[in-house]
């Protein structure tokens, strides 16, 4: 004798059945670029998750993409950490962008290991609203650890990585390729948890003004 067919509610209550609508609950912080926010699930940088950015070269405006949000966060009393940036962040420029410097922590470890350790600690501890990190090569294990740490600390983690690493698998919630465009950036959202991949042109007024 066959078992009676389960009802729909029984099926849905099974722990191994996931529904798309419950999966897509994403909290996000508006990036400050309206055209980008429209394409991102939750409308901005995901909170408590890992975001990877792959600029095709250094100095194409990748910082201008994140600075409006960093400025808003620090002005609201939040804290931001920058771990192992490629160069010295220039204080007057940050202040011009509206970043409150006293809410910014700059971590420049001597070793790569120190940077990875610091990133994970800051993500996990949680007092920083955002962590901008420039890690070197990252393996699956480190990425997974960062993702879990960001979840634990409810921190928004933005990792700036080499373009070559975009081809590798990653547990990050959001992955963006950045390419230079006149007066702005082309943002290719090629992985996006709770949304659909898309590409969007973002105008960066700061770049346009000087260029």
């Amino acid at each position: 004798m066959t078992a009676p067919a389960p009802t729909l509610s029984e099926v849905l209550s099974r722990p191994d059945v996931w529904r798309g609508s419950s999966f897509a609950r994403i909290t996000a912080e508006p990036s400050g670029h309206a055209e980008l926010d429209r394409k991102l699930p939750g409308g901005g940088w995901p909170v408590g998750a890992l975001t990877e950015l792959f600029p095709e070269a250094q100095g194409i405006g990748e910082m201008q993409l994140v600075l409006p949000w960093i400025a808003r966060l620090t002005q609201a009393g939040g804290r931001v950490a920058m771990v192992d940036p490629p160069h010295l962040p220039f204080a007057p420029a940050l202040a011009q962008s509206g970043v409150v410097l006293s809410r910014l922590l700059l971590v420049r470890p001597q070793s790569e290991d120190g940077g990875l350790w610091a990133t994970e600690q800051i993500l996990r501890a949680g007092p920083c609203g955002a962590v901008l990190a420039w890690p070197g090569r990252l393996g699956q294990v480190e990425l997974k650890r960062f993702q879990l740490a960001a979840e634990a600390g409810k921190t928004t983690a933005l990792m700036f990585r080499e373009p070559a690493a975009a081809a590798e698998f990653s547990p990050a919630a959001l992955r963006l390729k950045l390419a230079a465009r006149p007066g702005g950036l082309r943002v290719d959202i090629f992985k996006c948890r709770g949304g659909t991949p898309a590409a969007v042109d973002v105008l960066l007024p700061a770049l346009a003004a000087n260029g």
């Binding site: 962040p89 940050l94 922590l105 700059l106 420049r108 120190g114 610091a118 600690q121 501890a125």
Partner: peptide, 16 residues
Amino acid sequence: KLIARLGADAVTALGL
């Protein structure tokens, strides 16, 4: 924790 491990030179804030 960061200072204890990385040293005070590595963990700073910026000023104008």
